[in-house]
Measured scan of single mutants.
Amino acid sequence: MAEQVALSRTQVCGILREELFQGDAFHQSDTHIFIIMGASGDLAKKKIYPTIWWLFRDGLLPENTFIVGYARSRLTVADIRKQSEPFFKATPEEKLKLEDFFARNSYVAGQYDDAASYQRLNSHMNALHLGSQANRLFYLALPPTVYEAVTKNIHESCMSQIGWNRIIVEKPFGRDLQSSDRLSNHISSLFREDQIYRIDHYLGKEMVQNLMVLRFANRIFGPIWNRDNIACVILTFKEPFGTEGRGGYFDEFGIIRDVMQNHLLQMLCLVAMEKPASTNSDDVRDEKVKVLKCISEVQANNVVLGQYVGNPDGEGEATKGYLDDPTVPRGSTTATFAAVVLYVENERWDGVPFILRCGKALNERKAEVRLQFHDVAGDIFHQQCKRNELVIRVQPNEAVYTKMMTKKPGMFFNPEESELDLTYGNRYKNVKLPDAYERLILDVFCGSQMHFVRSDELREAWRIFTPLLHQIELEKPKPIPYIYGSRGPTEADELMKRVGFQYEGTYKWVNP
């Protein structure tokens, strides 16, 4: 592979701008107003304001973009700056750019259920340069409990009458099928589907988006991507930290609602779906819905739930269990780990287990898709061969690698495990991989909904998990304890083995 010439960040961002501006969906010269509902909250200060700053800094926003914060707290732009700027990672050389960014910011205080507050917000936006005809993007960085009041008031008082209007809704989209349907029906009564952007930030990850290209742009994968060759698929999300004093919020939802029903299920769809007619948003989402419709409700015998306990040999936070978090209700049975087996009941995947695993306070930070292939028929190497695996590593250190057998150097035919490896950090030294939120917010500006969740996708996802969630809430089974920093409950490994996964433990990928 030829040595790549190092590029400056300015040059890299210039390439990104060229890609972005050559499309006809990006209205570079139009006025846009980006409204952050819930501007005083954690999500706004840690993710949304920093993301908008990065896009502005790199010249990736339309030229005439204004940012308006809205929340109940009586704040000023200076207050917003004070709480969000520490997350910007701005350099001293960017000081003038930073001043320009905050000059485009404003803030309006108001209630979430008060019509007069929204009329005041609308008047404020109209007073901005060309504000009355601007395109408006409303980001709901809010708890779902206020979605209905907020969307109703936005629709009645704050819509642009000339430009387009788009609304970005953060997960969780309800707690179960019934609450999700209620919320979807409410929002759909106010906005068209092409105006609604239900954001799952995992769909903005580079390697998640790469799944489609790997599958449908490489001839070698087509013939082997089926039940005849693939023994099982494992989708993993692991965090090495616990709730760390923020367990009160987590306890309301648990690990299945927080990660599995959305992030992991979306990745499953991209692995299992048929080739779409095109890369058009609805063509892709149509195929994802077909996959979900082929999955039956989760069966309790295919589920393992766990909850982390303190590690007596650990240090600091590792010595504390979930129930030691003062914000967690006493005696909570909320799971911090889950392993679930699903089956896609169609011709391509009949009988292939899709194993979804996620948890907190585990032994490493990792998100990946792992396809394990069947054993080689007619073994001539005296059971020395391990199964081939194709691994798409989402985070950290984005990579695609194939675990395969090669001859060990020497005189004899002794096979050993090795890999074919594409590590993004080595291959793409001159490429700026956008943060997931950067990519998705740019998608909203461009009107691309491919990486957002459609209402029928959402409904099918909740259909699969709601009976299990209701059973857990009714019966309150005690989750299996696992030690902070471990791989999780051993019962999860036993479940995976029972459905056909072979864990060798003899080879570990190392970032080159």
Rank of each mutant, 00 (worst) to 15 (best):
R227P: 04
G38D: 01
L214S: 07
G245K: 10
Y249L: 00
I220V: 14
R120K: 14
H27Q: 13
P223S: 10
T65V: 14
D58K: 09
E206K: 02
S40R: 00
D58T: 10
V150L: 09
A6D: 15
Y202F: 08
T91W: 09
L235F: 11
S84C: 14
N105L: 11
E94C: 10
A25T: 15
E252S: 11
W225F: 12
I36Y: 01
R136Y: 14
L55V: 02
F216C: 00
Y249F: 04
E206A: 07
G69I: 03
R9M: 10
A127D: 14
L177G: 08
W225K: 00
R74G: 15
Q133A: 10
H129F: 13
I234T: 15
P50Y: 00
S117Q: 09
L203Q: 02
T151M: 07
Q133D: 13
R219D: 01
N210Q: 06
N185M: 12
A44I: 01
Q83I: 10
L121H: 03
E93Q: 14
P143D: 03
A44Q: 03
A127I: 12
I162N: 14
D114H: 12
T151P: 03
G204S: 05
E94W: 06
M207E: 00
G222K: 11
Q133P: 10
H27E: 14
L142K: 07
S189V: 09
S160P: 07
D181Q: 11
S84D: 06
I15H: 10
F101E: 04
N122W: 09
Q111W: 10
E18L: 10
G14R: 15
A103G: 12
Q11M: 11
K238G: 03
S179G: 09
T76C: 12
E252D: 10
S160E: 11
Y202L: 03
R72D: 03
A39H: 01
I52T: 06
V108M: 13
I224H: 06
D194H: 09
D113C: 13
R17W: 08
E19I: 14
D42F: 01
G23D: 15
D24C: 11
G174D: 00
E85K: 07
H186K: 14
R246F: 05
I187N: 02
D100I: 10
Q133E: 10
Y249I: 04
V208W: 03
K171C: 02
I52L: 09
F216T: 02
T236P: 02
K152V: 11
L211P: 01
H155I: 03
E244T: 11
F21Y: 10
T243V: 12
S8T: 15
E63R: 14
I35K: 03
A217Y: 05
N64Y: 07
Q209S: 12
R74A: 15
I196W: 00
E85N: 06
C232P: 07
P62S: 08
D200E: 04
I168Q: 00
E206V: 07
E148C: 09
K152F: 13
L214N: 00
I255Q: 06
L235M: 13
N218I: 00
Q111K: 13
G254E: 01
T91Q: 15
S73K: 10
D42P: 04
R81E: 07
A217K: 03
R219P: 10
R246G: 04
R74H: 11
E193L: 03
I52P: 04
D30F: 09
L128N: 08
I230K: 00
L7E: 13
G14A: 15
L190Q: 12
N135D: 08
L211D: 03
V68E: 06
I67E: 01
G23L: 12
L137M: 13
E94Y: 07
R81C: 08
Q178W: 14
G242K: 02
G242H: 03
V77C: 13
T151Q: 06
L7P: 10
F253C: 08
L16I: 15
F216Q: 05
A141V: 00
Q133T: 11
H32Q: 10
L7S: 13
A39D: 06
P86I: 09
I36P: 01
I196E: 03
F101K: 00
F101V: 00
S180A: 06
P223H: 10
W164M: 08
F34A: 06
K82Q: 10
W53L: 00
M37S: 02
F87K: 06
D100R: 09
I33R: 01
H27M: 13
R17F: 14
P240T: 13
R120T: 13
H129D: 13
S8R: 10
A78F: 13
L16K: 10
L75N: 09
D42E: 00
L55H: 08
F101W: 04
V12C: 12
D194R: 11
V150E: 01
A44L: 03
G163E: 03
R198H: 03
K97W: 03
Q209V: 07
P172A: 03
W54F: 06
H124C: 13
T51S: 08
T65S: 10
A134M: 10
S157F: 13
A6S: 15
E239P: 03
T91P: 10
N122I: 09
R175T: 06
D176T: 04
D251G: 05
L20F: 09
A109T: 15
A217W: 03
E156F: 10
L7K: 14
I220A: 10
T243D: 00
A134R: 14
Y147G: 02
E99Y: 07
A217S: 14
K205E: 05
F253I: 05
K45A: 07
Y147H: 01
R9G: 11
Q195T: 07
F250L: 01
S189E: 12
I234P: 02
Q178G: 12
E18Y: 07
D200L: 03
P50R: 10
Q22I: 15
K89D: 14
T91V: 15
R182S: 08
E170K: 01
P50I: 01
Y197P: 02
L60A: 06
D58A: 08
N229P: 00
G204I: 01
S188D: 07
L214C: 07
Q28K: 12
A127E: 14
S132K: 14
M207L: 12
G110F: 03
P223E: 08
A217F: 03
G248Q: 06
D114T: 14
L130N: 14
I36F: 00
Q22R: 13
R9S: 13
T76S: 12
N210H: 03
G163S: 08
P86L: 11
I154C: 10
N165S: 10
D100M: 12
R136V: 09
L214P: 02
R198K: 03
E193V: 08
L20Q: 10
I256D: 05
N210P: 01
K45T: 13
S132A: 11
P144S: 07
L211Y: 04
Q133L: 10
E239D: 06
S157C: 15
V12D: 11
V213L: 10
T91C: 12
W225Y: 06
F87W: 13
L130Y: 14
T65W: 07
S184G: 08
I224E: 06
N126I: 11
D42T: 00
L96T: 14
K47L: 06
L20A: 15
T243P: 09
Q161D: 13
F21Q: 10
I154K: 04
A78G: 14
E63H: 15
E170A: 04
R246P: 02
I220W: 13
F56S: 04
Q209K: 06
K171N: 01
N229I: 05
F102Q: 06
I230E: 03
G23T: 15
D100G: 11
I33L: 12
R17I: 09
K152Y: 13
T243G: 09
L235E: 02
F102D: 03
I196V: 15
P223W: 06
V150M: 06
L20M: 15
F34G: 01
R215L: 04
I15P: 06
D251W: 01
V68P: 04
P240E: 11
H129V: 14
N105D: 00
R219L: 07
G131R: 11
A141K: 04
C232Q: 14
E94M: 08
W54N: 10
Y202C: 00
E63W: 10
Y202G: 03
T236V: 06
L214D: 07
I154L: 15
A217I: 01
I33D: 03
S184A: 12
G222V: 09
N153V: 07
T31C: 13
M37E: 03
D194F: 07
G242W: 03
V108H: 10
I224Y: 05
F221I: 08
I224C: 13
F191H: 03
A141M: 03
H201R: 04
L121Y: 01
E206W: 07
E93V: 09
M212S: 01
R175A: 09
V12M: 15
Q195L: 07
T31G: 11
L235Y: 05
E18D: 12
T10F: 13
K45W: 05
M212L: 11
D251R: 01
Y249W: 00
F138M: 04
C158F: 07
Y249S: 04
I234H: 15
A6M: 15
Y118C: 07
D100H: 11
A115N: 13
A109Q: 13
L211N: 00
